[in-house]
Design a protein around this nucleic acid. Structure first.
Lengths: 208, 208
DNA sequence: GTCTATACATCGATAGAC
DNA sequence: GTCTATCGATGTATAGAC
């Protein structure tokens, strides 16, 4: 609302419209995928005309790549990446449980996160460059953070902290994929805490 | 080639054409996804006309669901499911290594398997019923087989064999996803055997 | 910068000849 | 059963008015 003046109304490529378009594109691409999303529906969802969409973005690919890159860099970073430093304070058993519980809570309860996983995986063959922001900004930081944590806790006596981090993350992510993304919840039920318990038990090498 | 007679040439809905169409559809759907695949291109890939495709299958959805169901039931079963019963003979450390190595060898080296994973995940939101054959015929048998194996090896003293099976499979599948499907190989390199070693070490509770 | 209107291609699906 | 030809709808992208 902080416009410079009335004479500037509609006179510049407004960042608000750019955001509205990206918001609309997010809903459409997440719901229908790349190919099945039309620029017309994006325009309607954004509340602008199709021509306006094309004045803000070069073409459909450009809009799509901009959107996905932004989603990977900003929106879903918090799902896996606990920027709060006190997350790593305390006994390993407690820390790992907090981490796993947090990840699963965020991922299992958020339909948008699951749609994003479907989109990234589904288009990774035709848009290899779009999988990179996911790996670079989401997967890599988490794995490296966890690797360093595992390496720093010598009492765990882990022979390969990095591989252990992969096991930890992989087990959790595949759990989300199988139960939620692929709708395996009813066919292959498994309580969340059973997975977490076994994971922690295996890593800390201590039974409960 | 075992035709009843020359008079029957082209007189019945030939199973060969059905297979040719399914073969063509496989290549197209795996390469371009559901929405971006046209029935025209399927027809060309199968060496028939578009009308012939529609005489063998009700519509695009019908062809797609038939194809995916067939792929999940037949083609990719062997990737994860070792029907050879002697696969489970021997020391747990040896058996688990054989199992993991076999799974990763089959999955990492096969572009079609990776395209299939992309397709299933990518379309699981819009075709929930198609994820089911994957879960039912691929994921479930492997997890249950492994669960029973873990439960039968009392010396491993696993408190939750089913959860342990999930960890085992999940770590391997997410490794394939991250390295191959999402092209993380260069950004996040990790040798296959390091993952397998750590997995086996954690489960059998014995260092090398 | 944003809109309406439109050009041009391609889609899924079918009709009718053989 | 299979083909060619085609219909109607919808896709991306742009031209031109304001």
């Amino acid at each position: 609302m902080a416009q410079i003046g009335l004479s500037n109304l509609g006179r510049q490529k407004s960042a608000e419209k750019t955001n509205a378009i990206l918001e609309g594109a997010m809903g459409e691409f997440l719901a229908h995928g790349y190919a099945a999303t039309s620029m017309e529906r994006v325009a309607v969802a954004a509340g602008v005309s199709k021509a306006t969409v094309y004045s803000h973005f070069q073409d459909k690919q450009g809009l799509f790549t901009t959107l996905v890159r932004r989603l990977a860099e900003e929106k879903y970073r918090t799902v896996f990446n606990p920027q709060d430093s006190q997350f790593l304070q305390g006994e390993p058993k407690v820390v790992l449980r907090r981490l796993a519980t947090n990840m699963l809570d965020n991922a299992m309860g958020d339909q948008q996160v699951q749609s994003f996983m479907r989109l990234i995986m589904g288009e990774s063959g035709r848009f290899p460059e779009l999988a990179q922001p996911y790996v670079e900004n989401l997967a890599k930081p988490v794995i490296e953070l966890l690797s360093q944590y595992f390496a720093s806790r010598c009492e765990l006596q882990l022979s390969d902290p990095e591989a252990t981090a992969r096991i930890f993350i992989g087990s959790l992510v595949y759990f989300v994929i199988l139960q939620e993304v692929l709708h395996g919840k009813e066919i292959l039920p498994l309580e969340r805490d059973r997975l977490i318990n076994s994971l922690i038990e295996m890593i800390t090498n201590a039974k409960y």
